[in-house]
Design a protein around this nucleic acid. Sequence first.
DNA 1: GCACAATTGGCACCAAGTGCCATGCGCGGC
DNA 2: GCCGCGCATGGCACTTGGTGCCAATTGTGC
Lengths: 239, 239
Amino acid sequence: MSARPDVTLAQRKRRLVSDELSEAALQMLALKGFDLVTIDEIAAAAGVSKRTFFRYFASKEDVVVRFLADLGSGIRAELAARPVQEPPSVALRHAVLAAMAVCADRSDHADRALVVVRLILRTPALRARFLEHQAQWRDDLATELAQRLGLDPGTDLYPRLAAGMALTAFDTVLQRWSAGDGAEDPAELTDRSFAVLGPALDAAERRDAPEQGAAPSPAADPPRSGKLPARPRSFREHE
Amino acid sequence: MSARPDVTLAQRKRRLVSDELSEAALQMLALKGFDLVTIDEIAAAAGVSKRTFFRYFASKEDVVVRFLADLGSGIRAELAARPVQEPPSVALRHAVLAAMAVCADRSDHADRALVVVRLILRTPALRARFLEHQAQWRDDLATELAQRLGLDPGTDLYPRLAAGMALTAFDTVLQRWSAGDGAEDPAELTDRSFAVLGPALDAAERRDAPEQGAAPSPAADPPRSGKLPARPRSFREHE
DNA sequence: GCACAATTGGCACCAAGTGCCATGCGCGGC
DNA sequence: GCCGCGCATGGCACTTGGTGCCAATTGTGC
């Protein structure tokens, strides 16, 4: 019966428990609401103890957010896989597209993704954790981008800003997609988002990268980029 | 001694307890680390009970994040106060500048802001809460922007993307500023960030706003305004 | 069959929050 | 001056997330 000789029985058992836990958790959480389900209930539904639950998931949020955990590495991997001569807007668009693909995937666990996303976006605690992950992705994306463009992430603001823009697009698409019950096409939403961001991405990159030998565009422009009139009046602080 | 006759004694007392709590919490948390300080300790240091702590702050994170809570409304207020004919890049830049002003303020509790920001950025739990706030700010900024430009936030992606870009700039500046021990000028970092984002902001806005009656700019441009063909495919794609 | 590691469950324990109630204090009315 | 009202407080019990520890079980290699 074992089609995977390199996978021991213990490992399969572990995987099975993990799946059972995820399954039970996701269903109950989506049904009753995140904070109306205790971990004891989830564990009991999966047939294990609460103590065992925490041997598989670091927290209650983890069991939900884990579904999207590998999106980050996926985005970065896709970016790294794009040809270097590709302009940032295109490369980043494909990177985000790769992440959205698992949402658009209508075959496997299609609506599962939709349920998870909607649960996350409407539960503050989950949303917070998710944003934390995104922050990590942004760091990774920024370093990847910097290395790709030969920039120094310690001095150039561009990599971080570009990564942030890409993830802003990702976030916007996710939100729209989940708000529309998955009716809208994630890929099309992504394209539209990058149609807004893209020109900025490339123009900015050209202006901010001092080296990067072959810059075909004249990049003329009255930049007005330096300082501007000092400071708008500050507003009152708290109270 | 009471310079505020319209403020009752009870209110001042409450305010005093709140300040005492914030003070104690901030100092201890920054000193020992966020999760190495219990609420009982903070409360005890402020001379109240743990139960009272929770009558002033919703959570342990709240007492720290509260310091930055009003930044969001400040940003939105500043955006709303900018003249309508101002292009989004300029208006948003000033909005972010207004928020950064409290950080640049070297007079009052200058380093206090730096301490808080650094504590938040390097503590996962606080970072998560902070990002949650930012997500809320982005929603607010997006609706404000949509209303300012006469766009429908339900169909146009631009407001959300623009708000996200502005907050990306904010976040990037904050991070750089705190990483450099406050040595760099927040206003200058903000200007540099918007020098990257700005052109995109305006170009995209012109392209995405179909109506907007009084557009002084000729807005010439091959508009290509609506949907784009399935995929821009400006370069080569292979999949 | 036997030692060995891994998995598990139960238990005690800590910290974050919350609900409830009794107490104390300021403040206005009488 | 006394009384009652409102409010802030403190203490307590309780729930829940999360962890450390240990004993029992189970699978694995020899």
